[in-house]
Simulated assay, not measured.
Amino acid sequence: MMATTHALFGVVLATATATVAPEFAPVAFVAGVVGSVFPDLDLYAGHRRTLHFPVYYAVAALPAVALAVVSPVAETVALALFLAGAAAHSLMDVFGGGLELKPWRAESDRAVYDHYRGRWVAPRRWIRYDGAPEDLLVAGFFAAPALVVWTGPPRTFVAAVLLVSAGYALARKPLAALVERLVPALPSALRSRLPERFRATADRTPPAQTGD
């Protein structure tokens, strides 16, 4: 799924929290969004493995949520929303495509790494790839309640994220084609810093033929 879809799910968590405890609306909004995008900070270092924990985040979120219910202060609410968002992100990625530049080809069997079981979880492909039309539909579904409930900067943020989602969905496949052309031309030192699926593009590109 798109990072923006995950961010909007964080807004859903914040909206639910603000409905029952409006005094925590600001901290819930920030913590929900940050937690929901946090796992993707591993994009350049073992994507969907280094910071994705589909089991451990969920296990940690349960007592955190319970603590926030029993002792609702800004810190406990923020921790609960952060962990719930990170757990949801790690689980939601299982429903998408695999780790590949063009996931619509369904060539990868890796969606998210399960540290508890020590293996990769296969992608379900209910959402075929990040930026797919169904991914944008889910993003819109997540955004709709927030556009009604929130006002001011939060509503502007949600609208902007939804707009970015639409732009990315339109550009997703052309961007992949552009990467295939550009990455092989980069210096090897720079290529080594790119995500693995980008480096794999260069590795599959045959060397140019030269005459004698």
Rank of each mutant, 00 (worst) to 15 (best):
H115K: 03
A122H: 07
T4R: 11
S71D: 13
D93N: 07
M1S: 11
I127G: 03
A14G: 11
R125S: 07
L170A: 12
A58D: 05
E107L: 15
D212V: 00
V34S: 05
V37W: 04
Y168C: 00
A60V: 02
D212S: 13
M92H: 10
K102Q: 15
F95R: 03
K173Y: 06
L67E: 05
A7C: 10
V34R: 01
Y168A: 07
A45G: 13
P133A: 00
P26K: 03
V20M: 10
D135A: 02
T19S: 12
P187L: 02
V34N: 02
L182N: 02
P72C: 03
L81S: 12
V59P: 06
P26V: 04
M92F: 13
M1E: 10
L43C: 13
P63D: 07
A3Y: 12
V77L: 09
H52N: 09
V94C: 02
Q209W: 14
P39R: 08
L182G: 01
G96H: 08
A176T: 14
A160W: 11
R181P: 02
R125C: 07
L67T: 06
V33T: 05
L91Y: 01
G140V: 01
Y168T: 07
A139H: 01
T201M: 11
L51I: 08
T210D: 14
A144R: 03
L43E: 15
P123K: 00
Y116F: 15
A25T: 11
A185G: 12
R172A: 12
E23G: 14
L99E: 15
W126A: 09
F82G: 13
V65D: 01
S165I: 02
L190A: 13
H115V: 00
R117G: 02
L62V: 14
V179E: 11
E23F: 07
H6K: 05
M2R: 10
G152R: 08
E23Q: 14
P54R: 10
G131W: 09
P206A: 13
D135C: 01
T151H: 07
R48F: 09
L136K: 04
G140M: 04
P22H: 06
A88W: 14
L13T: 13
V183T: 03
V94G: 00
L43A: 15
A143N: 02
V73S: 09
A45N: 13
I127K: 09
L62P: 07
A106G: 06
D109P: 02
T15R: 06
P195K: 00
M2L: 15
S165R: 04
P63I: 01
K102W: 09
A189G: 09
V69G: 12
